[in-house]
Structure formats: C-alpha cells, structure tokens
Amino acid sequence: MKRAVFQLEPLTCPSCIKKIESTLNKTSGIQSATVLFNSSKVRVEFDEQDISTEQISKIITKLGYEVR
C-alpha cells in the first residue's frame, strides 16, 4: 500500500468531508481516505497497482474540489 496527501482549496462545510470520503472509500484500489477538515487535506492509502495519484486527484476534482 502507498500513502499520499492531497492539499485542497479550503473546505467550507462538514458535508464536503462526507462527500469526498464516501466517494474515495468506494473507489476500487483505495484502502482508506480521511479528510482533515481544519487543514483541508485528504490522506489516502491506496494500491498503486490499481489506481494512481493522478486518478485520485481527478476524482476529487470531479467532485468539485480543487487540488493544489
């Protein structure tokens, strides 16, 4: 398993956390995803054989959140 941290634009609501975590945790290849609301970061543990950091970033962007 590999770990990565994605810095997002500032998150403004708790429902943002649920939306991001729910989507990522249902994605094949992702073991776990945790949003750190105060720092606007997403920690992801994933299998790099199944999904790349670029693909994870695109998923987050499609949800409407800008990855820095």
Results as ranks from 00 to 15, higher is better:
1 M>I: 12
1 M>T: 12
1 M>D: 13
3 R>K: 10
3 R>G: 01
3 R>V: 08
4 A>P: 00
4 A>R: 14
5 V>D: 09
6 F>T: 06
6 F>N: 13
6 F>E: 05
9 E>P: 11
9 E>Q: 12
11 L>S: 08
12 T>Q: 10
12 T>C: 08
13 C>I: 01
13 C>Y: 01
14 P>C: 00
14 P>W: 02
15 S>L: 08
16 C>R: 01
16 C>H: 08
17 I>A: 10
17 I>L: 11
18 K>G: 06
18 K>E: 04
19 K>R: 14
20 I>K: 09
22 S>P: 00
23 T>E: 04
24 L>K: 08
24 L>V: 11
27 T>R: 10
27 T>D: 02
28 S>W: 05
28 S>P: 00
29 G>L: 00
29 G>C: 03
30 I>F: 03
30 I>V: 13
30 I>C: 04
31 Q>W: 13
31 Q>V: 09
32 S>W: 00
34 T>G: 05
35 V>F: 02
37 F>I: 01
37 F>S: 02
38 N>R: 06
38 N>V: 01
41 K>S: 00
41 K>C: 01
41 K>N: 12
41 K>Y: 04
42 V>H: 06
45 E>L: 03
45 E>T: 10
45 E>C: 02
47 D>L: 11
47 D>C: 06
48 E>K: 10
48 E>P: 03
50 D>A: 14
51 I>Y: 04
52 S>K: 03
52 S>M: 12
55 Q>W: 06
56 I>L: 11
57 S>C: 07
57 S>N: 08
57 S>V: 00
57 S>R: 08
59 I>H: 14
59 I>Y: 15
60 I>T: 08
60 I>Q: 09
62 K>S: 07
62 K>A: 14
63 L>M: 13
66 E>L: 02
67 V>A: 05
